[in-house]
Write a protein that binds this DNA or RNA. Structure first.
Length: 552
RNA sequence: UGGGGCGUAGCCAAGCGGUUAAGGCACCGGGUUUUGAUCUCGGCAUGCGAAAGUUCGAAUCUUUCCGCCCCAGCCA
């Protein structure tokens, strides 16, 4: 007997939080936040963070804020914000408050003035290049800026001037006065405010200066009363700075940062910058291209929220930078759709079959189960007639070994229907197969044929009822398991990641389905109705093929 | 050659000094099957990056070594 707790895998962050709650830390409150910068669409890496942040808070009866870390108006936009909200919502998580770092700009500025007055922040007037030189290197300490010891009055005046737009971008910058010789480069007087005269979509033209991440993030966490600030490993080196700022300012909240390993997935890239590059260079149709690892791409591909959450649960939370096999993701949606999706038949590359033993105008309506193991999903009617379509690849004149489908003179079962035998192959002048003339055995409907075994079963659609559709078969976006290991990841793109079947034949019951309806096309895989679909012409995307243990 | 992390099977991942090192995926083999699917049964680390050491006892503690990742944005 499995219990709820058996299903929740344990990990170091849950262990830590359990301990915190047991020790009455933060009054037993677990408050987290998901803090994306609105500079791109959310992807699977974010899904991992979303599931962790929202999931763990939910488990401990706490709450989670959705916070837009909007401190760099050059790269951010409202389009990204609404896409992010839509995606988090689609996954099924509810945020307690919708927050914006920009809502704290006044407070952040007051804190900055406070730091200047305390003598732990100063306005530097070195150029960006000089600052880089002064910063030293990984092995050499940095040296102090000549502007480091300006008086408080001077610093305040300069800071106000920066804020009032009296200086150009790059002329001055506000830095923390920490330690230019620190072995941790983040502590070598990090910049906390830069002049940027960009219009901000929320604060308009109020500010000429914008705060930087290290300064903004910890304070935003504190202001919101976040208890557990969970982020990825690359911020580990920033934790001392996170704590330093909070100690200086002593805001009410005492959030603590904990880092976990990022998600890497084979045959894809999980980096907003890289994904943006794919979008801008038109290598994909957009952020929601079904090949993209974005949540909107996965959604269009046919993935469900449950399948993505299941994936996040399976991969676990550790401090390893795990590289997950693609099939783990694929199995998640396969398993769900195997349970849920109604079966249909569709022929992607049709070849016509004429059942010569079937009367010209006879139509037989067959009742077919929508699911082999779930009778509650009911039946549907499909017609059998003299002319049918079968898959071109299901017929071979010269069959390879162990071929279980149709061959000249051979028999095969038409799924849910009769056994047919191929008598004649009709070809055109160029030796292309035009159609197959077959005969059926009327004694084989719902019965095994007598005196012989027919081992193959193939799918089909009746020509009279078939609806022409466009079926898009997607494959992995990259042909290399680690695209970023290449000089240029663009070179690792899979040229065959999309194969379109413009004249597929689907049974009628597919053509009436709503966008996002998912089916299993028997023997082939799972497919979803795309938003490009029209009443005249259904468009379907392949989510994932069925498992295939025989080809290799 | 500075700092911060990480190394348990092909891929994830439990394990926190005490029987034969959880589990999942993949893989291999058997059964069922009108989807070469599903389902089902079984197999799959004398070994925990390596080497020393502590201990009656080590994946777990110590030391050294090796490998991989991150950090020198006025990005987040």
């Amino acid at each position: 007997m499995t219990t709820e707790t058996d299903l929740i895998p344990t990990h170091f962050i849950r262990n830590m939080i359990e301990k915190d709650v047991a020790n009455n830390k933060h009054d037993k409150l677990v408050a987290t936040r998901f803090p994306p910068e609105p500079n791109g669409y959310l992807h699977l890496g974010h899904a991992k963070s979303i599931c962790l942040n929202f999931g763990i808070a939910e488990e401990f009866n706490g709450w989670t804020n959705l916070r837009f870390d909007d401190t760099n108006p050059d790269k951010e936009s409202e389009e990204y914000m609404s896409a992010i909200k839509r995606d988090v919502d689609w996954l099924g998580f509810e945020w307690k408050s919708l927050c914006y770092s920009s809502d704290y700009f006044d407070q952040l500025y007051d804190y900055a003035v406070l730091l200047v007055k305390k003598g732990v922040a100063y306005v530097d007037s070195l150029s960006a290049e000089e600052i880089r030189e002064y910063r030293g290197s990984l092995t050499e300490p940095g040296k102090e800026s000549p502007y480091r010891n300006r008086s408080v009055e001077q610093n305040i005046e300069l800071l106000e001037g920066m804020n009032n737009g009296e200086y150009e971008e790059g002329e001055h910058i506000l830095r923390l006065k920490i330690d230019m010789a620190s072995s941790n480069i983040n502590m070598r007087d990090p910049a906390i405010y830069r002049i940027k005269k960009t219009h901000h979509y929320r604060t308009a033209d109020k500010w000429n200066i914008y705060p930087l991440y290290d300064y903004t993030h910890c304070l935003s966490d504190a202001i919101e009363g976040i208890t557990h600030s969970l982020c990825t490993l690359e911020f580990e080196d920033h934790r001392p700075l996170y704590n330093w700022v909070l100690e200086q300012i002593q805001p009410e909240g005492r959030p603590e940062q904990t880092e976990f390993g990022p998600l890497n997935l084979e045959y894809t890239v999980l980096s907003k910058r890289k994904l943006l590059q794919l979008v801008e260079s038109k290598k994909v149709s957009g952020w929601d291209d079904p090949r993209m690892p974005t949540l909107s791409g996965l959604r269009r591909r046919g993935y469900t929220p449950a399948s993505i959450k299941e994936f996040c649960k399976l991969i676990g939370i550790t401090k390893n930078s795990a590289l997950i096999e693609l099939l783990v993701l694929e199995n998640c949606i396969r398993d769900e759709l195997n349970e849920m999706a109604e079966r249909r038949m569709a022929v992607l590359e049709p070849i016509k079959v004429v059942v010569t033993t079937w009367p010209e105008d006879k139509i037989e309506t067959l009742q077919v189960a929508n699911h082999p193991n779930q009778p509650e999903l009911g039946n549907r009617s499909i017609n059998f007639g003299r002319e049918l379509y079968i898959e071109r690849s299901d017929f071979e004149e010269i069959p390879p070994p162990k071929f279980k489908r149709l061959i000249t003179g051979g028999e095969v079962r038409l799924r849910s229907s009769y056994v047919i035998r191929c008598d004649t192959v009709v070809k055109d002048d160029d030796n292309n197969i035009i159609e197959l003339h077959c005969s059926h055995d009327p004694e084989t409907l719902g019965k095994k044929p007598e005196g012989r075994k027919v081992k193959g079963v193939i799918h089909w659609v009746s020509a009279a009822d078939a609806v022409s559709a466009e079926v898009r078969v997607y494959d992995r976006l990259f042909s290399q398991p680690e695209p970023l290991a290449h000089e240029n990841f663009i070179d690792a793109l899979n040229p065959d990641s999309l194969q379109t079947h413009p004249d597929a034949k689907v049974e009628y019951a597919v053509s009436t389905a709503a966008v996002e309806t998912r089916f299993q096309f028997e023997r082939q895989g799972y497919f979803v109705v795309d938003k490009d679909t029209t009443t005249e012409r259904p468009v379907l995307n392949r989510v994932v093929p069925l498992r295939d243990n025989w080809t290799k």
